[in-house]
Write a protein that binds this DNA or RNA. Structure first.
Lengths: 121, 121
DNA sequence: ATGAGTGTATTATATATCTAGTACACTAGT
DNA sequence: ACTAGTGTACTAGATATATAATACACTCAT
């Protein structure tokens, strides 16, 4: 297993990995995505786990599965942008909620984030 | 089951719940924490799950367990502040990392978070 | 001493996730 | 037709999490 967080299902992390590559332009609309077997052997996970991730992506309209051929990123760029924004939104809401519950004020949260972003430069 | 996120172990969420109440001042250093049985029946979870959360908190030095009596918040306020900051740090790092991977710039991330905090006012 | 309320420990069961292995159907190039 | 590479489907087993039920040990008020 490579690069996966243990407290989150691997199939979810795979789906997010594909989405992230797509929104960053590493995969272009219509591009072929590695097959389940390729991806599995590259990341050292079970093919079944990859299949589940790809099925989720297909359900969300981000990937088109062509039996016998492989998996392709959708050409529907709106879908991609929507998925990107939704994931960002979800991440932000959770983060802001958690920090609020830890008793930090709006200003403190902004300050902490700025420091963090600076460090990550 | 009440108020628990399905994609995170309940015992972790319980431990975080106690920590959050502590750093917000809803529980004071040295205060008694509900017993495992009380907490379990109040939150509609299994006592064993609560026990595990309390054991984790004890391992982190946030809670002192007194057999036959109950569980007490530590009087070591430094430990509490450390735990608070560590959890905040972890949350922020994950958030910033996720948004970076979604292709957002530093400025965009700060802007998005500010908007989110504004909405949550 | 007794009893109510604690923490602790153990066993059993259920579910989700992940792995492993196998088999089958589809597509394209030869 | 054949073959290699695909997606799909299924069964089986391992692990983590959560529940359920029970028993035992400790503390304190009575």
């Amino acid at each position: 297993m490579t690069d996966f967080d243990t407290n989150k299902p691997i199939y979810q992390q795979i789906a997010e990995d594909i989405l992230k590559k797509a929104v960053r332009g590493e995969i272009l609309p219509g591009d072929r995505i590695p097959s389940a077997r390729e991806y599995a052997s590259q990341k050292l996970v079970n093919p079944n786990t990859v299949v589940r991730a790809f099925q989720d992506l297909e359900r969300e309209g981000l990937v088109v599965v062509k039996r016998g051929l492989g998996n392709y990123l959708t050409t529907d760029t709106t879908r991609l942008e929507d998925a990107r924004f939704q994931l960002a939104q979800k991440t932000l809401i959770q983060c802001a909620k958690d920090l609020r519950e830890l008793g930090y004020t709006t200003k403190q949260i902004q300050q902490l984030l700025s420091q963090q972003l600076e460090v990550m430069k």
